[in-house]
Amino acid sequence: MPGSGLVLGRARRERLQVGESETVGPYTLLRLERGSLDPGIPGQFFMLEAPGRVLPRPMSLCQAPPGELAFLIEPVGPGTRALCALEERDAIHVLGPLGNGFDLDVERPLLVAGGIGIAPMPYLSDALGSPPAILGFRSERHAEAAVLLTDAEVVVEPRLVTELLPEDPGDVLACGPEPMLEAIRALVPRTQLAWEAPMACGYGACYGCVVEVDGHYERLCIAGPVLREAA
């Protein structure tokens, strides 16, 4: 067994080799060999070593082809740029799967994503049998990532994903920028929203990623990143 076998729940930590990465619009689809890591439940995340940086970066799994783990990454800072610059046969430490993913026991799922929030949707869509999806992007170039999902409705700013929400949307499973998630939460009675926060560790050690839940600060890496709400 590669790696030294640390087990945190179902999570393991291993050094994984980089496969052939792809450019998807402004994003990079980083492919890693899977090793003995479990791909986990859609919406769960992995901590990826960012070469040259002090802290790893949390990334939700985008695709789980046989023997691989694929992550969609937007190069927005030094850590994500280092990850996008990885080349085939490089290797990085990966810890996961971590956190709570989406509850797949839903009757009428509708996937909604904004920008890099599309990252967990392909794996989620596969798990749910390709339900309808609405994607929003800030430019046509970013919208090229829509190829990762079949048959999704796509809007580009200034249009917003909330404009396409049907009157009775069923269960909305969403990931995207905070204002988008807040807007969905205000409009939709049953939601599962995947939130984002800066994380140092991803496994409950640092208390850096707290979000307010029922008036208390909870660690998003443990309580989430998917938080469920039913009105």
Partner: peptide
């Protein structure tokens, strides 16, 4: 103690 408001960490 609830602790300080987020964001609470930053990489340098």
């Amino acid at each position: 103690r609830e602790g300080n408001p987020p964001p609470r960490i930053a990489e340098t």
